[in-house]
Nucleic acid binder design. Sequence first.
DNA 1: CTGTTAGCGCCTTCAA
DNA 2: TTGAAGGCGCTAACAG
Lengths: 351, 351
Amino acid sequence: MDEAFSEEPGRQTQRSSASVTLEDVARVAGVTAMTVSRALHRPELVRSETQKRVLDAVRMTGYVPNMLAGALASNKSRLVALLLPTIATSIFTDTVQAMMDSLAASGYQTLLGLTGYSATREEELVHTLLGRRPDGIVLTGTDHTPLTLERLSKAKVPIVEIWDLTDDPIDMLVGFSHEAVGAAVARHLLAKGYQRFGVVSADDPRGLRRSHSVIWELQRHGVDHVPIEVLKAPATLQTGREGLIRMLKTGLPEVLVCSTDTLAQGILIEAASRGMNVPHDVAVMGFGDLNTAAHLHPALSTVRVDGPAVGTTAAEALLSRFNAKALEETAVLRVDVGFKIIDRESVAGYR
Amino acid sequence: MDEAFSEEPGRQTQRSSASVTLEDVARVAGVTAMTVSRALHRPELVRSETQKRVLDAVRMTGYVPNMLAGALASNKSRLVALLLPTIATSIFTDTVQAMMDSLAASGYQTLLGLTGYSATREEELVHTLLGRRPDGIVLTGTDHTPLTLERLSKAKVPIVEIWDLTDDPIDMLVGFSHEAVGAAVARHLLAKGYQRFGVVSADDPRGLRRSHSVIWELQRHGVDHVPIEVLKAPATLQTGREGLIRMLKTGLPEVLVCSTDTLAQGILIEAASRGMNVPHDVAVMGFGDLNTAAHLHPALSTVRVDGPAVGTTAAEALLSRFNAKALEETAVLRVDVGFKIIDRESVAGYR
DNA sequence: CTGTTAGCGCCTTCAA
DNA sequence: TTGAAGGCGCTAACAG
């Protein structure tokens, strides 16, 4: 090879995998790296003709900004960490979709972590996710281990807790009271004249609180001996079927209150497979408005929670924090998105 | 203040938000930053007594490794980008859960992007996600814009396409043939003696291919005039109800084939609300095994796809690539996970 | 087994 | 409106 010696060996440590850099673009455009950076992020600071040259160079080279480097240098990752118990149950999907849409529209990307309703797992995930230096963190629920809280406060990252309410949020909060849901459900069913109740619950923290709140409120109204079946989280249709089967053994009440629509639908399936008539043989109450208000099952009532609202509100809360210049303009956010009980009588008025 | 002058102003550009660095830990442990780094990532290279001192220092300082810096320096982000059409429909949730579990177990985090079944949106997402320099990318489906393909090939990142099969995958592939699904469904139903068919489909690419394949196969067997209702993606229970309503207008067949279990369940709900008897008045066939095989609705048949297997296989494919030293040991992966038709007759044998 | 040196690719700051 | 210098926090490579 004639050109064998044209290879400049040098010390050549750390060859990146030949990815195009700002400098490469700059060379092609005949400017400095700094000007390219400006043209890309603050075009108003660059002469429009330069701007054009830079954009052409970007196109020619196929430059993809290295956000790892950008984040390191600017101390802004444009990353939001989202911690969810699970995506196996559709109860959170609307929230996630809405949140990610809002964030993406503002140039933020989402790091997802699944905790499986385990506070310990959440603790680990918070730790590793903090390693990415996210600009914001979204946590599901308000129960966290002491270590989680310590790490979060140390990190000084904007935080939104969602899907629950508490008097001492870590930072911002978008949710509703699960106790209030349970109590409202109990009163709703009492008002309808039901007297014998049963509860089928997944053993996730918030589901249990809703379920127990139903029972407490019933007791307050003189209804004792409300049987409860607690089933493994996450709730699935199968879990729901199992719930009905167990309830049948202990004696079927007039109405079954479920911690989640998925359980409720499972119960409907099991009931159908046994030729039972819902709500005649047993009425079923769900939770979450998992496609329910709009798609109300003829035999199912439920509690509607506005999942998308939770997502957009949480996203906007974070975004406003990101854009706040001074600490003074950072609003304290605490939103109760509320909920609404939906059944055949109310659904017409609902949409 | 006596110590006002003890503040060393210097040039002090770019104060980070006071986060603990390797150097801080090193100082406390009485070693160099490099030794701390080793103690954390390659403990076998460090004397165990040093190791202990370092870990103590880490604990005392509350050090959280900055993975942005680590990724930049090592050219390994330990990030996997996952592009999904949507999480609104539960069809992908098992896959996601399984994949994230596998990846997390190996220290990889997941960046999520939702395309909404839009190739253009996918194109944008691939671009921005590539900015994070992920070590691997998982794409849903095999249809991508030319620009997407160009960017991906330029990035030289390991890629797995999931939930479909093709003869020219970008890189690795874990899925099944949607044409084969449709044809198998058609033959299955013909064998059962059905003669009048209808198809209800969401208008997502793979759903449509399954649906059309059903119709083609029926035609091959002499069944013409199979009506199809195409509804907006993503499929919801409400969409399913709408599907049945439309089908009732054009005349109800003996069996309705749905592109997804969600649609099928919506149809069951609408049927129930009209007092119709499934499968007597109309039989319903779903797809996806969304809780179905294990929780078989008495009136529903479906096609089981092993979602978790797709997830773990994809994750393991990526991981083996990440761990491969040489190009030669990187396996070409092309897995057909297959599928299975499930109905009341076969479900007993199924699990 | 541990330390030193030299970047990774970008952005902040200051100077022109 | 543009450029030059320096550093973000970490790790590869080499030296001891």
